[in-house]
Computed example of a mutant assay.
Amino acid sequence: MPPIRVSIPSFRSEISSLEKGYTVFKIDVLMNGRQHAIEKRYSEFHALHKMLKKSIKPPEVPSKHVRNWVPKVLEQRRHGLELYLQTIIMENEVLPKIFLDFLNIRHFPSVPKTESCGSFETDSDELSKLTHQPVMLYLRDPYLFPTAHDTFANVVSEGVIHGVFYPDLQPR
């Protein structure tokens, strides 16, 4: 099971006075137990597809020319776009950065499918785009899976016990 799951549960039509109407697809992204939703227009999928063709062989993207006002056709497009994203995840050992950016996954530039998280090999421009920066990164949970040389679990346990049973004592 890959660490990233995507689905497109719904879509909605937008009407703008500046341009003709368009459809927005809601994408649910689940990665390592965290879920977020983004919205993308078909034109953004099409642009992604063009960029992905430079680095991988992506599956076919659903047709660009459809009647946007027919609900049955829009439902077929929604299903096709969902399958498109899922196929990219399943068929690529390392997901391209452009694909992760499309899904708003910016913390892990090279996420292998078999690991729970990637490395922080970023340049200064990328770090400035982050809204928050992590303090630590563990490839496994040191509290749930401690090793002999891992003192993190003991520090946390001792701190909690000390705070609960001896709240009036100050640390030395």
Rank of each mutant, 00 (worst) to 15 (best):
P3K: 04
P3E: 03
P9N: 04
S10M: 09
F11T: 13
S13M: 12
S17M: 01
S17V: 15
E19F: 00
K20P: 01
T23P: 03
K26W: 06
V29L: 09
K40M: 09
R41D: 05
R41W: 13
R41A: 06
Y42M: 05
F45Y: 08
F45I: 01
H46G: 01
H46C: 08
L48S: 00
L48K: 03
K50D: 02
K53I: 03
K53E: 01
K53R: 11
K54N: 09
S55F: 06
K57H: 06
P58E: 02
P59M: 09
E60R: 10
S63Y: 00
K64I: 01
K64T: 14
V66W: 06
R67I: 15
N68C: 04
V70F: 07
V73L: 08
Q76F: 07
G80H: 08
L81P: 01
E82R: 09
Y84T: 12
M90N: 07
M90E: 10
E93D: 05
L95W: 01
L95F: 03
I98Q: 02
D101P: 03
N104P: 00
H107K: 12
F108P: 00
P112F: 08
P112M: 11
P112A: 07
K113L: 12
E115R: 14
C117R: 04
G118Y: 04
S119Q: 11
F120H: 10
S124P: 02
D125N: 10
E126P: 01
S128W: 12
K129A: 13
V135F: 12
L144V: 14
F145W: 05
T147W: 07
A148R: 13
T151A: 11
F152L: 00
F152C: 00
A153I: 11
N154D: 02
N154G: 10
V155N: 02
S157T: 15
S157C: 10
I161P: 02
F165V: 10
P167Q: 02
P167S: 09
L169F: 10
L169A: 11
